[in-house]
Amino acid sequence: MSSSTWEIITSALPQIITAAINYTIPLTLISFVLGLLLALITAMVRLSPLRGPFQIVRGLFWGYVWLFRSTPLLVQLFIVFFGLPNMGIQFSPWTAAIITFTLNVGAYSSETIRAAILSIPNGQWEAALTLGMTRRQVLFRIILPQAVRVSLPPLSNSFIGLVKDTSLASSITIVEMFTVGQQISARTYEPLLLYSLVALIYLVICTVLTILQGYLEKWTSRYVPTQH
């Protein structure tokens, strides 16, 4: 490796890592936490047995999931950031990114959580209900703690997916990792090197998350006797 290559690496790497710390990571964390909350609410609304006017609410949440799973994330970002100002609704790049990522990851994760709740045997509901618990108590004390274990692998998929999807925020003027790589590559004419460096940092972040997922799975499965 030539000394100039080393120079590029040593000067580019801190800039890329800084972008990761300032943008990629917070964007992912904030959107995922808010998205999970939205996903939980969406799953609960869609599973609620309530009838009457509540069915309209359920329909709205169904529509939300349908809309955000059926359109590309990049198009959603563009509509929120570049499109909505036409209607007088203007967001900063940060706000637009967080809103879009939250809504997108919330739609996918709501299906994960809904499936996990449905996977818990009906006998668990019945046993808890006959002990006099309210539906809310059964859900939060008996069903969701078990559903966490079931939903952990697919939710980790969404989380890791979101880390990489934040690179799309570059298209709405956010100077995250990918944008930084792009800028340095344009200056140094070293696209292979720069984009590889960017990929490497994504790889490191996602590896850490994969290891974390392993620990969480072990912990949430502690009551399951044998793991195959």
Partner: peptide
């Protein structure tokens, strides 16, 4: 209520 399949809370 006691059920045929116990239905203890596994967690």
């Amino acid at each position: 209520m006691v059920f045929q399949n116990f239905n203890l809370f596994p967690h």
